[in-house]
């Protein structure tokens, strides 16, 4: 490089770096602003709920049945039990069905066949269908209609299950696809059948991912309100559902909604308490999902 060129080159470098420096500051700053806005909204919401709800929280609140007359004696036992039962039955439904569907689509289905492609596209679409539509489906086919289950836990859980099944299948497929092909080949080359390969190599490798997907799906199901309203969950259940297939049931979101709509200020405060309980449940589930992912995720 000749001597004369040096200052020119420096000027160019300096000019570029000034513009770049400004952009370097503006861009992350605007990103921060977006995060701050989202976080601020969340924090305000949580604080508002916590201020209202924390005084309500007590053992009595958790163990009492809701009352329409005495807010001070009112609690969420039936709603909490209802929600837990819904989650358990929902999990029993979606774990095998979702995992099996994911295995079929990844390992057995020939992607060139039109019906398999149709199934794939439909699962993607179903994941985006509004939850109220699933509620109507549940009402028409599970509560009434062909199955005639009635307004029971089983009907509610199956409705929620159908709602989150697409998510379980999609996440499950991702997890199965993440198991490298070399593992499949290694297993098959040893004389293992496809079924043995799936059962002993692919599923264990995909399990953390599948489990994470299931927990996240349940976290979505636990907060769903609309489908449960349509399916006919009770707003003020004075007893727990003893039977999954015959007793009416309530759930936390339903209870919250009922209290929020109450004209009496005292009942609306109870809603904040129930929201806190629901949030804590959610937090635990998501923490569980993160733990599973970090602890057991297979690095290939």
């Amino acid at each position: 490089m000749s001597v004369a060129e040096v200052p020119v080159a420096r000027a160019v470098v300096r000019g570029a770096s000034r513009g770049a420096r400004v952009r370097e500051i503006i861009f992350p700053a605007s990103l921060m602003l977006c995060i701050a806005f989202a976080m601020l909204t969340l924090v305000v919401l949580l604080l508002d709920v916590a201020v209202d709800g924390l005084p309500v929280l007590s053992w009595n609140f958790l163990t009492s049945f809701p009352s329409q007359v005495f807010p001070e004696r009112s609690g969420i036992q039936s709603a909490l039990v209802g929600t837990l039962l819904l989650m358990v039955v929902c999990a029993v439904f979606i774990v095998p069905v979702g995992t099996a569907s994911a295995i079929y689509l990844e390992e057995y289905a020939d992607g060139n066949r039109w019906w398999n492609r149709l199934i794939e596209v439909n699962i993607q679409n179903l994941a985006a269908v509004p939850s109220i539509v699933y509620g109507i489906l549940g009402l028409a086919f599970l509560v009434r209609g062909p199955l005639e289950l009635g307004r029971v836990v089983l009907a509610g859980a199956l409705t929620l299950g159908l709602l989150v099944l697409p998510v379980v299948i999609i996440v499950g497929r991702e997890a199965i696809r993440a198991v490298p092909n070399s593992i499949r080949e290694g297993s098959m080359a040893l004389g293992a059948t496809l079924w043995q390969t799936i059962w002993k190599q692919i599923l264990p490798g995909a399990l953390p991912g599948i489990a994470t997907g299931i927990i996240l799906a349940l976290s979505r199901a636990i907060g769903e309100t609309a489908p449960l309203i349509v399916v006919g969950a009770a707003a003020f259940a004075r007893f727990n559902p003893n039977d999954l297939t015959s007793d009416p049931f309530s759930a936390l979101p339903i209870q919250i909604l009922a209290w929020i709509q109450d004209p009496q200020e005292e009942f609306r405060t109870l809603a904040a308490g129930a929201i806190l309980v629901l949030l804590i449940l959610l937090l635990f589930m998501n923490a569980g999902a993160i733990y599973l992912r970090n602890r057991y995720e297979q690095k290939w």
Partner: peptide
């Protein structure tokens, strides 16, 4: 067939 005829691949592929 694969029970009698084993195979070793290019990239080592131990199971996890």
């Amino acid at each position: 067939v694969r029970k009698r005829i084993g195979m070793v691949f290019q990239k080592p592929n131990p199971f996890p």
